[in-house]
Amino acid sequence: MIRVLIADDEPMIRAGVRAVLATDPEIEVVAEAGDGREAVDMVWRHRPRVAVLDIRMPGLGGIEAAAEIRRTAPETGVVMLTTFGEDASILQALGGGAAGFLIKSGEPEELIAGIRAVAGGAAYLSPKVAARVVAHLASTGAGAAGGRRTAARERVAALTARERDVLVLLGTGLSNAQIARRLQVVEGTVKAHVSSILARLAVDNRAAAAVVAHEAGLVP
């Protein structure tokens, strides 16, 4: 059973997330919080496998709460809920240890897939989120965007052909198990490739690696 905490300052959003998760018999919502500080306290009290946090909450915000949870309760994976107008905040959250990024208006199946991926020790970057991050980076200026594209392609060029294959699938939000099935290899092999990819790309997590994949043009 995957134990989940939901944190959002809007009761209707919490109810909606709870209703979606109730459709999966292997997911149990063990607590709800209305702000970031309460979310951190609830994580300590209930020890959920995954904490679903709104990126913007009163008091301690979602980004700060995610960083504190990852620092004090690393066994709890963090999934951030975002909206289309918060691209810069997504970039901040990438560095805060969050393992999943989902759009609130996304498909219900995506929420379940993201929670399952993070609960399994993987990361889940919604393709829409990745596209928005790349678009936001590009909006800072053609020259800067071109420089980032070139830098991303240079970093990707250091990967082996198989690592590039894994990175493409990782960039679409697949878990290690899903990548293993797609490439017809054992999951341990995929884990080894992912570790190598993170080291070669000089990033801290799979979500950040997915952004590099999008910037380099590997993922449509």
Score class of each variant (00 low, 15 high):
Ser195Met: 04
Val166Cys: 11
Ala145Asn: 11
Leu198Lys: 00
Arg71Lys: 09
Val203Asp: 14
Ala161Lys: 11
Ala93Ser: 02
Ala177Gln: 09
Ser139His: 09
Ile63Cys: 00
Ile90Asn: 10
Ile13Met: 12
Glu110Ile: 06
Leu198Asn: 01
Asn205Ile: 02
Arg47Lys: 14
Val17Gly: 12
Arg116Asn: 03
Gly171Tyr: 03
Thr83Gln: 15
Leu137Glu: 03
Asp35Glu: 09
Gly114Asn: 08
Thr172Gly: 03
Ile2Phe: 04
Arg47Thr: 10
Pro58Val: 09
Leu169Asp: 06
Leu167Gln: 07
His214Gln: 09
Val134Asn: 12
Leu201Asp: 08
Val194Tyr: 03
Val133Lys: 14
Ala130Tyr: 07
Ala192Ile: 08
Pro74Tyr: 05
Leu137Asn: 03
Ala73Pro: 14
Ile112Leu: 13
Ile63Ser: 00
Ile69Val: 15
Gly106Asp: 07
Leu102Glu: 01
Ala151Phe: 09
Arg18Gln: 14
Ala130Lys: 08
Ala119Cys: 08
His214Glu: 10
Leu201Tyr: 06
Val156Tyr: 15
Gly121Cys: 08
Thr150Glu: 15
Gly95Lys: 06
Ala51Ser: 12
Ala66His: 01
Ala65Ile: 00
Val43Cys: 11
Val40Met: 04
Ala73Ser: 15
Val29Gln: 10
Leu102Val: 11
Pro127Arg: 02
Glu75Gly: 14
Ala135Gly: 06
Val134Trp: 11
Ala144Leu: 08
Gly34Pro: 12
Ile112Trp: 14
Glu187Ser: 09
Gly100Leu: 04
Gly173Cys: 06
Asp35Met: 00
Leu60Met: 09
Ala145Trp: 10
Gly100Thr: 02
Ala66Lys: 03
Gly61Lys: 05
Leu174Thr: 07
Ala22Phe: 13
Ala145Glu: 09
His46Val: 05
Arg56Val: 05
Leu125Val: 08
Arg116Lys: 11
Pro220Leu: 13
Gly62Thr: 02
Ala130Phe: 07
Ala216Ile: 07
Glu64Thr: 06
Glu68Thr: 05
Ala130Pro: 13
Ala135Lys: 02
Ile55Val: 09
Ile6Trp: 03
Phe84Thr: 05
Pro11Val: 00
Phe84Tyr: 15
Leu102Asp: 01
Arg206Lys: 08
Ala117Asp: 01
Leu5Pro: 11
Arg181Trp: 10
Leu60Cys: 00
Ile115Leu: 09
Asp204Met: 08
His136Lys: 02
Gly100Glu: 00
Glu28Asn: 14
Leu94His: 06
Pro48Phe: 00
Arg148His: 03
Ala117Tyr: 02
Glu68Gln: 10
Ala88Pro: 00
Arg149Trp: 09
Ser195Tyr: 02
Arg181Leu: 12
Val134Gln: 14
Ala31Gly: 10
Ala199Gln: 14
Asp204Val: 04
Arg153Tyr: 09
Glu28Lys: 13
